[in-house]
Design a protein around this nucleic acid. Structure first.
Lengths: 349, 349
DNA sequence: CGAAATAATGGTATCGTTCCCATCGTAGTG
DNA sequence: CACTACGATGGGAACGATACCATTATTTCG
């Protein structure tokens, strides 16, 4: 492969700085490598001057080639336009920066072929850790990757038998909180909306906890579940909701994630249904939830914290060649009460 | 700096593959470098087998060290949680991937110190191009960077005297479309909401076109402008809007970007004002704009296209050591009509 | 049939760093 | 004073890849 040199002018190298400063490469390397104190003040000054004259920046590629450390961590994002992912990303990025790491973000657009390609690329760049926010099934590739000892954290997903940490929501507690709130505010019929479970463990967990609760509390409430794929769109949801409310006396819709909340809101709007008389409770907080005319009640995840924690996990594994059990860290959501769960009796409207 | 080796097991190297395949490093390099066809079929097979046995991936760091090309392009984002930025990012990423480039995304959180740090880092990684979506003033650092010949594209900003392309909205046309639409739907008093102009050229352009139009059409409409900083929050906006509607007969609020649309919507909700009787028109489309009870009319930017085009500019400059004039590429927005601009007469409610 | 072109392969310098080891002067110690 | 210790500096071999040039075997052609 004939790689043409880059069009823009070449950067100054350490060697040039050394020459300019009448010093050795070693000394300049020490200066920039954090061993500044073992150089005489005079030498330091000379190097500083030469470097700024040449506008020198160390070449991290070369550095990591020799040192083995790249200072890079990768993140695989299923859908970069998902506010939840972005918020977590923000947390990771902050934490990473504080420790001198940079984040390489790869958007897989829910495409596992792309995921493969990006993984290969991230490896090629020598990332020191990987945060994965996959959509569905986590690919075989990832399992192998984890087995090489690369520190890895899964967001909201588990991979049985894989040595990787997991950071996410306490799904059982979340579902319990949701149901408790709905019951408390007077709703009795629950339609649970989720994206297709595929092999996403968190969706699986939420769903099974929900069905568990539905049977455990069947004297109080009864419920239904519907798996809605985003590609299917509104048209497949509308009849389901119509049918649901026609048979329910005190109906509420519980949304398994932000996408579902959006779909549900669109659906209610299209059907001209009065949100509130039809309850609406979403998992994940979105900026517009407070804006709709009865605000939408949500269970907000501590997104930034999840991100920071995910990075912290990577760091620990990286530092101490961590070989402990893979950890599962689960956060509780915060209930944000709004108008969408405040009108228990539809006949009151 | 004593860089400890990474905790996870070292990857196989080209040399090892060569040994395993009884071939020379050169041949292996050819195999992975895209000169596969000049190897005999037998040799190819041996290398393929050896590589997969060792699970070999080329080290891109080493490759770029020698070749001078890193395949990396950088993006500086003012606020990663801004949907507009994310959408553009998505466009860039797609285009970049198609050409075999990876994107390093750096979030500056509107902090120019952070911006500096990230620039230094991006340079250190040897990026071959940079897309900048800065918030306010574009730092001196950037100007210098551009002068080194690094291909650079500014989103929605201009830097006078700097050799960098610019991709963004045609602000004059946008303002014209906005005003024409407001007039056509019957509004006569316009409150223009913008984030502080600082040195952001697009805000500057929108504002000055607006004031130009206000005077040009002063027989038809009259208007007011208000600069609202996000940190000031709702409290500083509410009295302004109250005062505005008290003196206006056919009032409409025109929002300079998505943040402002959010603030305006919040404000109208808090004041319990009927959106529609108070017109609302936002620049930038957001997913919830269709959800509010009268939908919010917006002027949507072709975000993905902007991103793709930005990358294309980088590529051109990179390829042909482009030295032409810096280009300014301006897109027209699309008007999405909704309920928020459909009720010209407040007394009709 | 011999020279020249072509195809297939290998050897090695090099990219910009870090790091080990060597060097050298100066001071401290018995 | 000789000997060690130490502090400051430099030389050069890696790191993992590419690319130039050289080598050998095979074909082509006058």
């Amino acid at each position: 492969m004939n790689l043409a040199p880059p069009a823009h002018s070449r950067r100054a190298t350490l060697k040039q700085v050394a020459q300019e400063a009448c010093a050795s490469k070693t000394s300049v390397s020490r200066y920039f490598g954090g061993a500044r104190e073992q150089l005489s003040l005079d030498l330091q000054k000379r190097i500083a001057r030469a470097a700024s004259r040449l506008n020198y920046r160390p070449n991290l590629m070369a550095r990591s080639l020799k040192g083995g450390r790249t200072g890079l961590i990768g993140m695989l994002v299923a859908d970069i336009r998902n506010p939840f992912s972005v918020a977590v990303m923000h947390g990771i990025e902050q934490a990473a920066r504080e420790q001198g790491f940079s984040l390489m973000i790869c958007n897989t657009d829910n495409d596992s072929r792309l995921e493969q390609a990006h993984i290969a690329q991230l490896i090629s760049y020598g990332i020191e850790g990987l945060v994965v926010n996959a959509s569905g099934r986590v690919s075989q590739e990832l399992a192998e990757l984890a087995s090489t000892g690369l520190p890895m954290v899964l967001l909201d997903r588990q991979l049985p038998g894989v040595e990787a940490d997991m950071v996410g929501l306490d799904n059982d507690a979340t579902i319990d909180m949701a149901i408790a709130h709905l019951i408390e505010t007077g709703y009795r019929d629950i339609l649970y909306l989720s994206e297709p479970v595929n092999h996403a463990s968190s969706r699986q967990e939420r769903l099974s906890r929900l069905t568990y609760q539905l049977t455990a509390q069947e004297s109080t409430i009864n419920g239904k579940t519907f798996m809605l794929s985003m590609s299917a769109g509104l048209t497949s949801l509308v009849p389901v909701v119509e049918q649901f409310i026609s048979t329910a006396s005190r109906p509420a819709i519980l949304c398994g994630n932000g996408n579902m909340t959006l779909m549900a809101a669109r659906c209610l709007k299209q059907l001209k249904l009065n949100t509130g008389s039809i309850g609406l409770l979403g998992i994940d907080e979105l900026e517009w939830c407070s804006l709709l005319t009865p605000g939408i009640t949500t269970l907000a995840q501590p997104t930034e914290e999840i991100g920071r924690r995910a990075f912290a996990c990577l760091l620990e594994r990286n530092r101490e060649a961590y070989v402990g059990q893979s950890r599962h860290i689960r956060y509780h959501p915060t209930l944000i009460k709004r108008g969408s769960t405040s009108c228990p009796d539809p006949h009151a409207i």
